[in-house]
């Protein structure tokens, strides 16, 4: 129970930071338009800041959403098969996700040093700070996946029904 609470707390913190980043993005980009059109000052760094903050927002948000199991899934098959095969499939999905996250995490971690000498044009910010977003986001996803896998193994097939993917218009679709 406490482990679950800690997971929820981490996810919430990540999400709150992402919310703040979203509001910041609106302010920064709107300001760059006003600055250029009204005060005739060019804000040459707005694109870099915009793209960089977006990357952070997405990785933190994606990690929080992974903890809530709200990533887009086509669950037509999952809804139609029995509990046992669904349980087996759930374990497979979790392991497959862990494999992918681990590969990307290892790469991102290594890129932080490989890319330390590369920097953005306008502000000269090292790309390490951008790769850090990947490291933190993917790291959190790995932790969440391990916790979920632990729950699946400990509680057995009954766990599957609890974590069934919810379809919600705002997270389940993109068109």
């Amino acid at each position: 129970m406490t482990l679950e609470r800690i997971e929820a707390a981490i996810a919430r913190v990540l999400e709150i930071v992402a919310l703040i980043l979203m509001l910041t993005l609106v302010v920064v980009i709107a300001w760059s338009v006003v600055g250029r059109q009204v005060f005739h000052v060019s804000v040459p760094w707005s694109e870099e800041i915009g793209a960089g903050l977006l990357m952070w927002m997405v990785m933190l948000g994606a990690a929080a959403t992974w903890s809530r199991r709200r990533h887009i899934t086509i669950d037509v098959l999952l809804r139609r098969i029995g509990l046992r095969p669904r349980y087996a499939l759930s374990i497979f999905i979790e392991l497959a996700s862990l494999l992918l996250f681990a590969v990307a995490f290892k790469g991102a971690f290594s890129m932080m040093s490989v890319s330390a000498n590369n920097s953005t044009t306008a502000l000269g910010i090292s790309y390490s700070y951008l790769y850090l977003a990947l490291v933190i986001g993917l790291g959190a996803m790995i932790i969440f996946s391990l916790l979920h896998l632990g729950r699946l193994l400990r509680r057995g097939p009954s766990m599957v029904a609890v974590t069934e993917t919810e379809t919600e218009w705002n997270t389940s679709s993109s068109s």
Binding site: A18, L19, M22, G61, A62, A64, T65, R68, N170
Partner: peptide, 11 residues
Amino acid sequence: RTVRFTSVIMF
């Protein structure tokens, strides 16, 4: 909702 939707799509 915006952050969840965006991060899922952009991931």
